[in-house]
Amino acid sequence: MNIDFNKNNDGLVPAIIQDASTKKVLMLGYMNAEALEKTKATKLVTFYSRTKKRLWTKGEESGNVLNLVDIKLDCDNDTLLVSVLPKGPTCHKGTDTCWGEPNEESYGFISHLQDVIKDRRLNFAPTESYVSSLFAKGINKIAQKVGEEAVEVVIEAKDSDDNLFLNESADLLFHYLILLEAKGFQVKDVVEILKGREK
């Protein structure tokens, strides 16, 4: 990597630390050439401390180290993206990230949709919400809906109307998320099973 350590006249470049699994940004630190070389050699993320004026390996006192997975350089050659597997909380205040967020996988809109479904289950009357009405009818009705939507996806897959196929696919996914909530699970639980099958 052709890193421009002299761009800011201090020999340092920002190092954005990201969990390799969850993709959450955990912290920001700074590296000089020596810190980068030590990180590569030990596979433990090491920074240059601007306050202590020395190298410090994350977790050297707490044991909450950052195990190196990968390092990427940005397009301007002056910022590093460091992928890690953290051991314990990253922030010195004891939180998972330096922004106080939990280090959990997020599935974007799907995670938002799971939250909406849970809210409908907990806080809405069956007369106020379609989702709530399904929960009121019980697990058998919810499972039946998933089956019906799955059949409709199969039927539309055999035809040439992509719009209908995608709409039925959305219906299937939506009702499957409802079924997961009814069973007390989330998408992350299914993802963990799939990860375990990866070869």
Rank of each mutant, 00 (worst) to 15 (best):
residue 32 N to Y: 02
residue 174 F to L: 14
residue 14 P to F: 05
residue 178 I to Y: 02
residue 75 C to D: 14
residue 168 E to M: 07
residue 188 K to W: 03
residue 157 A to Y: 05
residue 66 L to R: 03
residue 112 H to L: 14
residue 17 I to T: 06
residue 50 R to K: 14
residue 90 T to V: 15
residue 135 F to V: 05
residue 131 V to W: 04
residue 103 N to H: 12
residue 172 L to V: 10
residue 127 T to R: 13
residue 135 F to I: 09
residue 112 H to P: 00
residue 176 Y to Q: 11
residue 154 V to L: 14
residue 161 D to A: 04
residue 98 C to S: 15
residue 43 K to L: 08
residue 177 L to H: 11
residue 74 D to I: 02
residue 145 K to M: 05
residue 140 N to T: 13
residue 83 S to I: 00
residue 166 L to H: 07
residue 10 D to A: 03
residue 139 I to S: 09
residue 132 S to I: 11
residue 147 G to V: 14
residue 24 K to I: 05
residue 144 Q to P: 00
residue 75 C to E: 14
residue 187 V to Y: 11
residue 67 N to D: 05
residue 53 K to V: 03
residue 130 Y to R: 07
residue 21 S to E: 13
residue 155 I to P: 00
residue 36 L to N: 01
residue 127 T to A: 15
residue 30 Y to I: 07
residue 148 E to N: 08
residue 193 I to G: 02
residue 172 L to I: 11
residue 148 E to S: 05
residue 18 Q to S: 07
residue 8 N to T: 07
residue 9 N to Y: 02
residue 95 T to A: 06
residue 72 K to H: 12
residue 15 A to P: 00
residue 82 V to A: 01
residue 82 V to Q: 00
residue 46 T to K: 01
residue 128 E to V: 08
residue 135 F to L: 10
residue 138 G to D: 13
residue 176 Y to D: 03
residue 193 I to R: 08
residue 118 K to I: 08
residue 65 V to G: 00
residue 153 V to Q: 04
residue 2 N to H: 10
residue 162 D to T: 15
residue 45 V to G: 00
residue 80 L to M: 03
residue 99 W to A: 15
residue 60 E to S: 11
residue 99 W to K: 14
residue 177 L to C: 13
residue 5 F to R: 06
residue 73 L to N: 12
residue 22 T to Y: 03
residue 158 K to M: 04
residue 135 F to N: 02
residue 61 E to D: 13
residue 182 A to S: 15
residue 87 K to G: 01
residue 87 K to W: 02
residue 57 T to V: 09
residue 134 L to V: 09
residue 114 Q to T: 07
residue 138 G to K: 08
residue 45 V to P: 01
residue 136 A to W: 05
residue 123 N to E: 08
residue 60 E to Y: 05
residue 141 K to P: 01
residue 35 A to I: 00
residue 92 H to P: 06
residue 74 D to N: 13
residue 86 P to H: 01
residue 138 G to P: 06
residue 3 I to R: 08
residue 131 V to I: 15
residue 122 L to R: 10
residue 65 V to C: 11
residue 77 N to C: 08
residue 149 E to Y: 09
residue 98 C to V: 14
residue 126 P to M: 12
residue 6 N to G: 09
residue 140 N to E: 14
residue 103 N to F: 12
residue 53 K to P: 04
residue 124 F to D: 06
residue 7 K to C: 04
residue 145 K to Q: 05
residue 62 S to I: 10
residue 13 V to L: 01
residue 176 Y to P: 00
residue 198 E to I: 13
residue 70 D to H: 06
residue 83 S to P: 00
residue 162 D to H: 09
residue 146 V to M: 12
residue 162 D to K: 13
residue 171 D to S: 12
residue 37 E to G: 06
residue 134 L to Y: 07
residue 64 N to F: 06
residue 78 D to T: 02
residue 15 A to C: 01
residue 161 D to K: 03
residue 48 Y to D: 02
residue 160 S to H: 06
residue 155 I to W: 07
residue 127 T to V: 15
residue 181 E to Y: 02
residue 70 D to T: 02
residue 166 L to I: 09
residue 96 D to Y: 14
residue 46 T to C: 07
residue 116 V to Y: 15
residue 31 M to V: 05
residue 192 E to S: 14
residue 105 E to F: 03
residue 164 L to W: 03
residue 101 E to Q: 15
residue 74 D to F: 08
residue 111 S to Y: 09
residue 178 I to H: 02
residue 22 T to R: 04
residue 80 L to C: 07
residue 32 N to R: 04
residue 190 V to N: 13
residue 42 T to V: 00
residue 107 Y to E: 04
residue 84 V to S: 04
